[in-house]
Nucleic acid binder design. Structure first.
Lengths: 201, 201, 201, 201
DNA sequence: CATGAATGAGGGTTCATTCAT
DNA sequence: AATGAATGAACCCTCATTCAT
């Protein structure tokens, strides 16, 4: 199976021309979110998703060539939203290092808090295609670069630690069944990271 | 699953007293480790495990009532090993806070580095039974208590942050496809945690 | 899909060790014969075949990795039988050219008459794998060589014409919905071929 | 298919009187030829045919009530062309028997050589409706009658043998993956048939 | 106790056909 | 008339689990 094929297999099938079709595509994704969140990846069958979307399986397959492509679309959406929020939060001017960290953590927490169970399915429970993993890796790299640019030392390794730490903790918060209180979580994470950064400059 | 209780379903079928049976059980677990690591959870079929163990499926089901019970046994083993190593590392007396943290992190990293792919399957890829999640939660609680006992303030929340952080980062290190350098990872994690702890006392 | 894979895909799955398994394998093939003959290839579903064999689909797939492999096994059986009968018929010593031709045609007709509908499915209605086509081509070549060896001229082309003609007519006879009378068919085919051969020597 | 009669199902839906409609019908048939030749019957989906024809599926079904009716139309076209060519070839006055046979064979070969793959699909790969088979049988009968009328003996059986032989060989030539050389094929077939006919008069 | 053949519900996916726009 | 989105029965196949030997 050449790379091109894989690409094809993960991309939505058609650019709909009628507005109805567009709505259907959105409904499928919404339904998939709910179904995956409720049943997990394996038990989140395409038939169930179609049911939940109020359409037939056939229609589902008009828009997504297979089950994995639905998952991929969901992950892409999540990434896009995360990036958007993160940029908004950090670009909002503000002098102090700590303030920036706090805003970043808060933004990420909010994005992830939206649906914890879904997040778990997307990032932990499902077999991830290589192309998708690459995409995620790319995203992380740009985050590292962004942070490094803001550091006096410009040290990439320090930046990577920070990014990884925040990401880890946020994901852990989300993954946890009995989550810590969110406000406290933001406080402590901020202290953790800001302290570390201060010690490195 | 109507009649059988969950308890029953997750516990090995019989407590074998004969050594041969015990050896078989161990071989099954070893085989499962290899198969899951190689094929993932979904494709790690019970037939494959039996094959790998050099026994028949029927025999496999003599020792484990279902697939999940094998997974559970694997997780239990992992937990036990982790606890053991952690205790050994931290009880090895030593005055400095930082030294203790470093030893703890190192121990955890070693336990997890053993087989990343398997770890991923156990903790991310497979549907975890509720009872198992509870067990893991209990473990975390005792870790928190242990740490809190060592803190001057005795603050449980601080302890929880520390435990969560270390756990998160270690799991993240393992999960990552392009992992950070281990030595550096330990250094930075230690600095992060030790710094945080110092600021809290 | 490399060649090895294809090979794998067309070969029966396991050499059964218990006699029961052997019987099952035979029953599957018998059932497939009946089902294909009755419903054609497309409508001859694996579930139907399993039903007809009195087993479950799962069992069917223990012995044949996919639908096509069943078809291939059927074709192989047919080829083997044909070759056997043909050799028996022609090796039965006899001086006259015509007698040999007659016996060959008769043998082939008998082999094919067994089940016309099935023959159609095997050779006309179903997508034939490349490996199987090659096998058939090989068989034809050896038939051509055999005939050529018996010709005074030894002309390969004449031999090929003869083989093709007989094969064509027999298949046509079988394929026909309103078949010619078999005895007459043998007579005329013999005259046709024998005459042609006589004119070529 | 309860209510609709078979007749209805196989006849084009409407006799279009407008030229545009007629052109559309022709385009559908052309597209079907290409698609079937390329993908075979099963994979030659109606959607693909519509695409290839540059129209929508809906429109396709305006002209042909179902997939089979397209196939039938294709076969009818093929038959008509064959009959036309055959008549032209044999009516072209000429005294010798052999010359007539040769022209007939040549004509048939040419008709069939046009598109071997398509021919295979039409006559071997697709489930043929009963009505179509009847039509083909009728055609053969008239061919037999035609030949018989030219025979001194007028023997119908001889005529049938001739027709069957030529038809068989031509179809065989077409079906073959490694076809004989066409010129040689015509020569030998002519000799075969002419010799046979000569021996019968 | 061991074996491995048998089971069958259920999954992802296709495609001829219909119907709202 | 044309469009193309929607339908859903049916297909091939997998795999956890059972049970006769």
């Amino acid at each position: 199976m050449p790379a091109k094929t894989l690409e094809k297999r993960l991309r939505p099938r058609k650019k709909p021309r009628q507005t109805r079709a567009l709505a259907t595509q959105a409904r499928i994704l919404d339904a998939a979110r709910r179904v995956f969140a409720k049943h997990g990846y394996a038990a989140g069958t395409t038939n169930r998703i179609a049911d939940e979307a109020g359409i037939s399986v056939g229609s589902l397959y008009q828009y997504y060539p297979n089950k994995d492509s639905i998952l991929t679309a969901l992950v892409r959406d999540h990434i896009e939203e995360g990036t958007r929020e993160l940029l908004a939060a950090t670009s909002a001017a503000g002098p102090g290092l700590e303030a920036v960290v706090r805003r970043a953590v808060t933004a990420l927490v909010e994005v992830h808090a939206a649906d914890r169970r879904l997040h778990r399915v997307l990032f932990e429970e499902s077999p991830r295609a290589a192309s998708l993993r690459a995409e995620l890796a790319r995203l992380e790299e740009s985050a590292v670069a962004l942070v490094a640019a803001r550091l006096p030392s410009g040290d990439e390794l320090t930046a990577r630690i920070v990014v990884t730490t925040i990401e880890s903790l946020v994901h852990r918060l989300v993954a946890s069944d009995r989550p810590l209180d969110t406000g406290r979580f933001v406080d402590e994470t901020t202290r953790l990271v800001a302290g570390y950064l201060a010690s490195r400059s």
